[in-house]
Every structure is written in C-alpha cells, then in structure tokens.
C-alpha cells in the first residue's frame, strides 16, 4: 500500500464572482509532500482556485461557492473552522512580493506575533531558521533591522516565503512566485521548492512551462474555469490526453 495521503481535495467545486461562473465543476486530489503546478492561459481561474484553499476569496464581496474543499479530509468551509487557524496551516506566497513596511526581522516574526508567541528567544530562532530555509539568511543576517523595502525584488519574494514558513504551515500556496524575478532569483526559488517538498505540500501557479516541468510532480491544466487535464507532470508535458493541453504547452495558444 504505497498510496500517498491526500492533503488537499476539491470535490465538484463551482465558484462565482457575482454572476460570473469562474470555476466549473472542478475535482482534484493533491497528495501530501508533493508539488503540484497549475498552468493555463490568463484568466482561466488558477488564482481563484488556489485562493479557495486558504479562503482568501472570502475577502471579496459577492462571491459564492458550491462543492467541497477539503484539507486533511475536513471541509475548510465548514462553519466550525476558524479561518485564522486554517490560514496558519495553509501559507500563501503572492505573485507580487508584498513585504510589510516593517523591518526584515519583523516581517518574518509577524506570523508568530499575531499568533500570540511572546517568547523572544523562540521568535529569534524561528526567524533565523525560516530565513535559512528560504536561502536568504546569508544575505540579510547583518541587516535584520533594516526595512524590508531595501531588499531587491527577488530577496523580497524569498522574504515572503520565509515569512510564510515561519509559522510552520503544512501547505504552501504559491501564486506565480517567480513571475517578477530574474533568472537567478527564479532558480533559487525553484531550488527552494525542491528542498521544501520534504516538509510541505506545495501548490504553485506558473506561466512558465519549463518551471512547471522542473519543479512539479503533478500538473493541472486549466482552461476557461475548467480543469481540463490533471496528471503526472511527465505525462502532461510528453504525452497529454487532451488536444487543448497539447496546444497550450507547445505554445499554440494562450
């Protein structure tokens, strides 16, 4: 029995922005400690789907969801679920680096502080660990008291990853984390994803086919709010079932 544990699952998910039907009947299972990539043309609903798993879409007025989103087999939209608790467990890295206008140290410590951690020694230790696993420690260890805005875009994005990891979530959602970065920073982040796989379940949205092929175990192809194909990454890129998938990855549209 080498069937892996299912970490995230979507069951017949439909999602609406007011009247606009953004996600149409999506079913997906994501295994624990795997990396899953979402690809698809702009506006097909990748971000919308990703943001369902930490309930970020709750912030938008007039949205509506049917179907089920499960984390460890439990419905995260159940009334008994505390959104804050859920988000502690499901970290998110956004497309644009969005550090707080605070010091580098306080950025990483933020999640701990809002979750009531008072032990400064522990906070210091977690900040260092997180910055280390985000491969940023060496670059910032001498300027932790400096504003996060003084970092480069790539460093800021790694800071945001460190910030997300500081509270030890089990899932990391990444929405085009490398889209604004140069090739070197991108390579660093991809390397990081490989590392993080040991401890996290990672879902990453990307427009970069090579990136999806390099980092992910499984890939999902979205088109106009539907999940067209979801399979092993190798299979998707070498021998997809659907013609539209084939067309997309070979760059014939989108």
């Amino acid at each position: 029995m080498d069937e892996k544990k299912i970490k995230l699952e979507a069951k017949n998910v439909n999602f609406y922005y007011d009247d606009f039907h953004a996600l149409k009947g999506i079913n997906m299972q994501i295994e624990q400690n795997s990396v899953v990539a979402f690809i698809g043309p702009s506006g097909c609903g990748k971000s919308t789907f990703l943001r369902l798993f930490n309930r970020m879409n709750d912030l938008i007025d007039g949205t509506h969801l049917t179907g089920e989103c499960l984390l460890d087999g439990r419905d995260i939209y159940d009334k008994r679920v505390h959104v804050d608790e859920l988000r502690k467990n499901v970290g998110m890295v956004f497309q644009k680096p969005n550090p707080f206008p605070k010091t580098i140290f306080e950025n990483v410590a933020y999640g701990l502080r809002v979750n009531g951690v008072k032990d400064e020694k522990y906070i210091k230790q977690r900040v260092e660990e997180s910055l280390q696993s985000a491969a940023l420690w060496e670059e910032v260890k001498d300027k932790l008291k400096k504003s996060a805005f003084e970092l480069s875009g790539g460093q800021q994005q790694r800071l945001c990853i460190a910030r997300a990891m500081a509270i030890s979530p089990s899932v990391l959602l990444m929405d085009e984390p490398a889209s604004a970065l140069d090739p070197i920073s991108t390579a660093k982040i991809e390397e990081l994803i490989h590392e993080l796989k040991k401890d996290y379940t990672i879902v990453i949205v990307t427009h970069n086919m090579q990136q999806a092929a390099r980092v992910s175990d499984k890939t999902g192809f979205f088109l106009l709010g539907e999940l067209i194909e979801y399979d092993q990454t190798k299979k998707i890129f070498l021998n997809p079932e659907k013609e539209s998938t084939q067309n997309y990855i070979t760059g014939r549209f989108g």
Partner: peptide, 23 residues
C-alpha cells in the same frame, strides 16, 4: 492600504483586528 498588504497579513493567520492595528 494595498489589498496585498491585507492579504499578506490575513494569510499569516492574523485576524481582522490584528491586521487593522498591525498593518
């Protein structure tokens, strides 16, 4: 305050009030 700031805070498990006074 940019929405991404708020989302960053909420995404780290901060509740609405913490987001208001910390960010």
């Amino acid at each position: 305050t940019p929405r991404i700031m708020k989302e960053a805070s909420l995404g780290l498990g901060a509740n609405h009030w913490q987001t208001i006074y910390r960010v």
